[in-house]
Structure formats: structure tokens, C-alpha cells
Measured scan of single mutants.
Amino acid sequence: KKTSWTEEEDRIIYQAHKRLGNRWAEIAKLLPGRTDNAIKNHWNSTMRRKVEQEGYLQESSK
């Protein structure tokens, strides 16, 4: 079943993607209940745009 993505999950994906790049299977290990494919789709459909537009979460990672 599809549940919506939480801010916490987005944060984990964002940090992991910065470190690992497009290694979705590795990132998926950090998110129980999410598949690598689901994460990749979420990144491509939602997060990548956010990151590019806003420099997503930069201000809170100090």
C-alpha cells in the first residue's frame, strides 16, 4: 500500500543521495518499508525538483 512520504523520509533520502548518489538499493536499506524503485520514483517526481529549486534543506544541515 502506498503511504505518503514524510519529511523525515525526505531528509534521509536527501542526505543519503548526497552521499551515495543514485544508488537506490543502498538508500532503500535506510528506509524500511520503501523499495529502491519507490524511492527512485519519489526522487525523480518530487524531490529532485525541490532540491534544484530551493537548495533543499541546506539551511537546516548546519
Score class of each variant (00 low, 15 high):
E9S: 01
Q53C: 12
H42P: 01
R34I: 07
Q53H: 06
M47R: 05
L31K: 01
E54V: 09
I13E: 03
E9M: 02
E26D: 09
L57T: 12
E52G: 09
N41K: 07
E26Q: 08
L31Y: 02
T6P: 02
S45L: 13
Y14R: 10
V51S: 10
S60L: 08
E8M: 10
I12S: 03
E54Y: 05
G21M: 03
D10T: 09
T6M: 03
I39W: 00
R11M: 10
D10R: 03
Q58S: 11
K2A: 07
L57N: 14
E9P: 01
K29V: 07
P32N: 06
H42E: 01
S60P: 11
K2C: 10
N37Y: 11
N44L: 13
W24P: 04
S61T: 14
P32Q: 06
M47T: 08
L31V: 09
K62D: 08
A25E: 14
W24A: 03
E8N: 13
S61R: 09
R48K: 15
L31D: 00
E26A: 05
A38L: 10
L30W: 05
P32D: 07
E7R: 07
K29Y: 05
S45T: 15
E9T: 01
G21C: 03
L31H: 00
K1T: 09
G33N: 07
R49F: 08
E54K: 11
R49C: 15
W43P: 01
S60T: 14
Q58W: 04
E7W: 01
M47D: 04
E9H: 02
E9D: 04
R11A: 10
S45Y: 15
P32I: 05
A38W: 05
G55Q: 08
K62Y: 08
I12C: 05
R34Y: 02
H42Y: 13
E54I: 05
S4A: 06
T46K: 10
Y14E: 09
K40G: 05
T6R: 05
T46N: 07
E9R: 00
K50W: 05
R49Q: 14
H42S: 00
E52W: 09
A38G: 06
V51Y: 09
E9L: 03
T35A: 09
Q53Y: 06
E54L: 12
W24H: 03
E54W: 09
D10Y: 04
E59Q: 11
Q58P: 13
G33W: 08
R49H: 15
N44D: 15
E8W: 07
E52M: 06
S4W: 01
Y14Q: 13
S60A: 12
K29N: 06
Y14T: 10
A38D: 13
S60F: 12
Y14G: 06
E54Q: 12
K1R: 06
W5C: 02
G33P: 02
K2H: 06
G21D: 04
N37H: 12
E52T: 13
P32T: 07
I39Y: 00
S61D: 11
N44T: 11
G21A: 05
W5L: 04
S61Q: 15
G33M: 05
L31Q: 00
R11L: 10
A28I: 00
S60C: 10
L57S: 14
E54S: 12
T46S: 12
L30V: 04
T3V: 13
L57Q: 09
R34H: 14
R34E: 01
G21V: 03
Y56T: 11
Y14W: 11
G33I: 00
E54N: 12
A25Y: 08
W24R: 01
I13Y: 00
T35N: 12
D36W: 03
R48D: 11
H42W: 05
S61Y: 10
V51A: 11
Y14V: 11
V51H: 12
R34L: 04
L57I: 11
Y56G: 12
G55D: 10
